[in-house]
């Protein structure tokens, strides 16, 4: 066992949680240039961003936000149940299913927007670039999250009162990806909707 460095299971758990939080700090700064690039671009060519925003699907984006927020609920319940040692698989399945549904809708959106994005000029092209880059990086994170949840599902029998650290750590990551989307949603979908 590669855990000789720890004196106790609790020490191992707290080290892993701290490790994941530090990784999430890294992730915040990984997204940093994208968010700052967006802010600068939006203030520089505001009009183009607004008209770009009106070309993407309000209802699909809103539905996707609801899906992702719900998946955070099921993930939180999965952590709770992992500690009880029963029913964790159901919650993991729901979480992965909601995540996958999000990605399917996103893929449909991409497919329907690609033509318009390719013909966009000037600031609107920059808007689409940021839209694809930021939601793309987010989708990649989500796909990794789904992979992790699937792995938890396969190893679900190991988790119980004594040991549920991998579920907890994956949960943190999942919620973080959710938070990123919570900011992306208004940034891309909600610009001056009253003028649309």
């Amino acid at each position: 066992m590669a855990t000789i460095q720890f004196d106790s299971a609790e020490e191992r758990r707290s080290a892993s949680l701290l490790g994941m939080w530090l990784f999430l700090a890294t992730e915040v700064l990984f997204f940093g240039p994208l968010f700052f690039g967006y802010l600068r671009g939006r203030l520089a060519v505001h009009e183009a961003f607004v008209s770009g925003s009106h070309h993407i699907h309000f209802w699909l984006g809103t539905a996707n936000t609801a899906l992702l927020l719900t998946s955070s609920l099921t993930m939180a319940l999965a952590v709770e149940r992992a500690k009880l040692g029963r029913g964790v698989r159901l919650m993991l399945s729901l979480t992965a299913a909601l995540g996958t549904a999000f990605l399917c809708i996103k893929a449909y959106e991409y497919a329907s927007e690609l033509g318009e994005a390719a013909s966009a000029r000037g600031g609107e092209a920059m808007f689409y670039f940021l839209y694809f880059a930021m939601t793309g990086v987010h989708a990649l994170h989500l796909a990794i999250g789904i992979g992790l949840v699937a792995w938890l599902w396969l190893t679900a029998r190991r988790y119980g009162e004594r040991y549920s650290m991998p579920v907890e750590v994956t949960g943190l990551y999942w919620h973080f990806v959710d938070i990123v989307w919570v900011f992306l949603y208004p940034m891309f979908y909600l610009l001056e909707r009253y003028n649309a």
Partner: peptide, 9 residues
């Protein structure tokens, strides 16, 4: 850790 990440951003 959470606060530092936001401060650095």
């Amino acid at each position: 850790a959470a606060v530092v990440a936001l401060v650095w951003l």
